[in-house]
Write a protein that binds this DNA or RNA. Structure first.
Lengths: 135, 135
DNA sequence: TCACTTTTCTAGACTTTGTCTAACGGTATA
DNA sequence: TATACCGTTAGACAAAGTCTAGAAAAGTGA
């Protein structure tokens, strides 16, 4: 899923024109399931790939990917947003000592009896976070 | 629960010396169950109460209250932290259009089969957020 | 009460994440 | 070639929160 042509196909099928910066960012994100901050992605683009991308492009692209559902924003750390390349339903541990976000294994938690959204609103997502610290 | 003497008792019983700034902030917070940002609290202190408090004091005090368990930090909006005066277990709707945080009625959601924390860590809290938008 | 120590408070500088703007670049179409 | 159009860029800017150094308050013991 991480070779260039597949990435281009993936972007196109989401209605995103595959510019070189977007391809680079997508290749980094979709290399494996992971949780990266905008800053980490910026660094990786400018170190690992041959091309460069500006801060504004990183933010624009991540926002676009999130809007198109290619990536999920995870808001657990007051100081930065994480971008999760795994968009299927799953939940997270967040270690407040280390700042590291990890997945909760599938089936290890069960959420049901989901609430009706209030009048005039619709649900757009469910997030479950178990905060942990080093013992 | 919101008269001055009760507030002082509450602070003392949590091991917090009741300075006038802390009392003012606590009175605002504990007037009712609510979700306030640091900025809202800063404004309320300097408008509604007779005394003044600086930004640093607001942040120090909220951090202290959170550490002592008088208040719960809710991290849902990438741009600011909410402080929840209801510390009993309950979950939230977050409306991304309005930026308003509301409680999910008790019993409207069910979470069980909580996961084991990873080796070397302990759980410090569970958060469930249903993101909603205006329809 | 006084002298001393410790805690808390304050203004304002600073840091960091993220946004905005205005100019520039590449590509497609005619 | 002209002309749109979209994407990218550097850097200025905004806003939340942190830090620092000094001032004020509050506690402590005699």
């Amino acid at each position: 899923m991480s070779n260039r042509d597949d990435i281009i196909k993936k972007l196109k099928s989401s209605g995103i024109s595959p510019t070189s910066q977007r391809i680079d960012i997508a290749q980094i994100l979709f290399a494996k399931p992971q949780h990266l901050s905008a800053e980490q992605i910026l660094n990786k683009v400018n170190e690992e790939s041959n091309s460069k991308a500006s801060k504004a492009t990183i933010y624009n692209t991540l926002g676009l990917f999130a809007k198109k559902g290619l990536v999920k924003e995870v808001i657990v750390d007051p100081s930065k947003v994480f971008y999760d390349s795994n968009v299927s339903r799953h939940f997270h541990f967040f270690n407040t000592d280390t700042g590291i976000l990890t997945d909760i294994p599938d089936g290890a938690i069960n959420v049901d009896h989901l609430p009706e959204s209030p009048e005039g609103t619709v649900s757009t997502g469910l997030e479950v976070i178990v905060r942990i610290k080093n013992s």
